[in-house]
């Protein structure tokens, strides 16, 4: 089931990639539709961040995880390097769980 779903995702993604070059010469895509697709992706991914940072199986996550995500998020917002932000998040959460 998991492998079949993964293959559906792979084939579907390939078709999405292929359709642009195929359509390119034939139709014009309204810019507002492009913007809406962009915004939809950001909405989906922001929701993913919120749900994975704050919840665990439908209930709230332990406080250590949101704290780590907050540290990593602030670092990333202040343009720290990607690796620093991610490692700082993990370190913060790990230390809080030790205490």
């Amino acid at each position: 089931m998991i492998v079949a779903s993964m293959l559906v995702l792979a084939v579907g993604t390939y078709l999405l990639r292929l359709s642009g070059p195929l359509l390119r010469t034939r139709v014009s895509f309204p810019p507002s539709a492009e913007r809406l697709l962009d915004v939809a992706a950001v909405v989906l991914l922001t929701a993913l961040v919120a749900v994975t940072a704050l919840t665990e199986g439908g209930g709230p996550a332990d406080a250590a995880r949101p704290a780590g995500v907050l540290v990593g998020g602030v670092l990333a917002w202040r343009k720290a390097s990607f690796m620093v932000a991610v490692l700082a998040a993990a370190a913060t959460t790990a230390v809080l769980r030790l205490i």
């Binding site: 995702l9 999405l16 990639r17 195929l22 359509l23 895509f29 962009d38």
Partner: peptide, 9 residues
Amino acid sequence: NARHLPYGL
């Protein structure tokens, strides 16, 4: 991944 459609365009 729907964003790849406008990318291709």
